[in-house]
Design a binder for these strands. Sequence first.
DNA 1: AAAGATATCAACCGCATAAAC
DNA 2: TGTTTATGCGGTTGATATCTT
Length: 370
Amino acid sequence: MGRHACCFKQKLRKGLWSPEEDEKLLNHITKYGHGCWSSVPKLAGLQRCGKSCRLRWINYLRPDLKRGTFSQQEEDLIVELHAVLGNRWSRIATRLPGRTDNEIKNFWNSCVKKKLKQSGIDPDTHKPLNEADGGEDRAAGKGNKASESGEAKLAPPASGNPEHAVLQPIAPLMSMLERNQIGRAMAATEEPCLPRSVESSSLSNSMNYMALQHASRSSNCGILNQNMPLWFAQNCRLLDMIPELSYYNTPSTPSTSVELEPMPAGLPPDASLLPFQYFEACNTSNSSASSGNSSNGVELQSYSPFLDSGIFPWSELLPNKGAEIHVEGEPEDLKWSEYLNGTIRLTDTINKQSRCSHGISKGEKHTAIH
DNA sequence: AAAGATATCAACCGCATAAAC
DNA sequence: TGTTTATGCGGTTGATATCTT
């Protein structure tokens, strides 16, 4: 279809919106809501197509828009979400209240991409550039189905050996990990949204890779410092809380594409909203780990490639394997130790996210109406 | 100060898909 | 069930602003 039917009508204005048009649209929607977009221009007295009105409202006139420059936290979040979701800007935008998909897309294309490249990271694959140039870059190139559909490809260094890891600055990712933002960002993900076919070992290696880089940096000499075991445990644990990442059920097959398991029967409809309930404690060898650890009658998956990739005795790093999660505290104040000790109440996190993404009122209406 | 290069961002285009008929 | 209409999304374009030479 492409162009909306109303766009074929004559005398429809195109291009930048005038202040008068903005006012008309704003007044109309404020009074009556938008209803059917195709009827909005007529009702509002505008010579625009409905599509154009919708876009103008969503990207500019909506009162809950944040505008302004992106904060470092937002930037970090975008990078990490892009690594998981790819170019699904609308999905990413749902994690950044007050930001539009268009805004994020522009920010990515004009700023973040460049920064990542300068840091030696391929913005498409989130891999080191020198690797992206290699054999695998065909996967990221044009004509690649996955690439075109916006699927992110997480593939860290081929070798999981820290000595072989190419240490590149990935400050945004690491700083976010350190601030627990992945967990919070992903906690409200509606459904497992990674492509069904993803290299699971790449995901795990990616995190290993990130961790190793962090380790290298934090020790200033490429040697793990004494805090690393905890750090590793924390982040690896966290990944299992992310439904997109925890949903793989083939922990040990290296470098093979795997099909995601379907949602287990009996899972509550919104179970994917409960990532923290949908994991157990990271010991893949213990297939009975789910027993006695099911929340809402759900048998929890046992999977953690991150912990069994062979670099570290991951499982040994995790205290309270299979700890039941319950809570007491505001998510913002969550500490890693709380994750590890199982003292987080997931619903708090989700409710918080929910509050953020709905009914956002900043009290500040943007003033950019020309 | 002027010209060209680069960055930014609003808006459009076309496709996919859901909903209505 | 097939067709038409409406909506949403991501890619792309073009105008404007800013920077560099």
